[in-house]
């Protein structure tokens, strides 16, 4: 009798076990199908991975979706993707038009906090160390600089090493290209994005809508770029007009996209495959 009972138990286990394996196979096939049929493995325009993201294929498979990068970002630029976001569920992304990364943490915390190093901090650490070394070499024998701040040297080098994407201008809608200026607030009053302008002494980022601009030729993207003249400049054309031009050092942080006053941003970020 008891043998019979265990027999039934075993049969039931094999039956349900077979169903379990079958459902696992379906899950596996489905995830493989989704992976193979994804439109592109890099996110859409203006949607970026956080700084330091490694190759997208490895990124999505090794990101454990813990959300530590989301937590640490002082301006909450990073969000976790829901299933309808077109990205892998739970992976972090930055949507630059609504909140760009303005580097106001000054230390790439999101990268440093990542436990599986899909946001790889080592490259930035090396870059920062190199910058300090170089600075020390340059200063050797010279009189000590009163304003010397190794942290600043380091963070600038680290910031410049970020490559989330590259900015592209839409010359047909850009105000400067049409010779127009801009005055007032760049975004609608309901906009809640924040930004720390490079020219202010504010340590904290402030709401974008609070800032009032006024310029004869719109140059807000150039003014607000956290990287500065290495990344974007107002280039004087042969006819004397000034137009913004994106340079190689652009990190793709997206601040320019966030502060662009045209209805559809006249500057976009194209993500770069790491």
């Amino acid at each position: 009798m008891s043998k019979n009972k265990t027999d039934i138990g075993r049969r039931q286990f094999f039956k349900t076990g077979a169903i379990a394996i079958g459902s696992l196979a379906i899950v596996g096939a489905a995830s493989n199908y989704l992976k193979a049929n994804k439109k592109n493995d890099i996110p859409d325009t203006n949607i970026l991975r956080p700084p330091g993201a490694i190759n997208e294929d490895i990124f999505v498979s090794e990101c454990i979706k813990c959300g530590l990068c989301v937590q640490i970002c002082p301006i909450q630029a990073i969000k976790l993707a829901d299933i309808d976001a077109g990205l892998d569920y739970g992976t972090p992304y930055i949507e630059v038009r609504s909140q760009a990364c303005d580097f106001s943490c000054d230390s790439l915390q999101c990268v440093e906090t990542c436990p599986t190093a899909v946001l790889d901090f080592q490259q930035f650490k090396r870059e920062g160390e190199k910058a300090i070394e170089k600075y020390d070499k340059e200063m050797a024998g010279k009189q000590m600089d009163k304003n010397y701040n190794p942290f600043k040297v380091q963070i600038i080098a680290m910031k410049e090493h970020v490559k989330m994407g590259i900015a592209k201008l839409n010359t047909s809608t850009c105000l400067a290209y049409q010779g127009k200026g801009f005055s007032g607030s760049v975004r609608d009053s309901g906009f809640d994005g924040v930004n720390r302008s490079p020219y202010t002494k504010d340590r904290k980022a402030t709401p974008v809508v609070d800032k009032k601009y006024s310029s004869d030729i719109c140059d807000i993207c150039v003014k607000e770029c956290p990287i500065g003249e290495k990344a974007i400049v107002m280039e004087v054309q042969s006819d004397g007009t000034k137009k913004p031009k994106v340079l190689d050092a652009c990190t793709g942080c997206g601040v320019c996209v966030m502060v662009c006053p045209t209805e559809e941003p006249s500057i976009i970020i194209e993500p770069i495959k790491a």
Binding site: S31, D88, Y89
Partner: peptide, 27 residues
């Protein structure tokens, strides 16, 4: 059902993660 079923899933999802190189179970 049989309690051991979860070990089938335990091994299964681990194999699935390695085979598809994605954290399938996390979804």
């Amino acid at each position: 059902y049989n309690q051991s079923l979860r070990y089938v899933f335990w091994v299964g999802f681990l194999i699935l993660a390695i085979a598809t190189q994605q954290l399938v179970f996390e979804d």
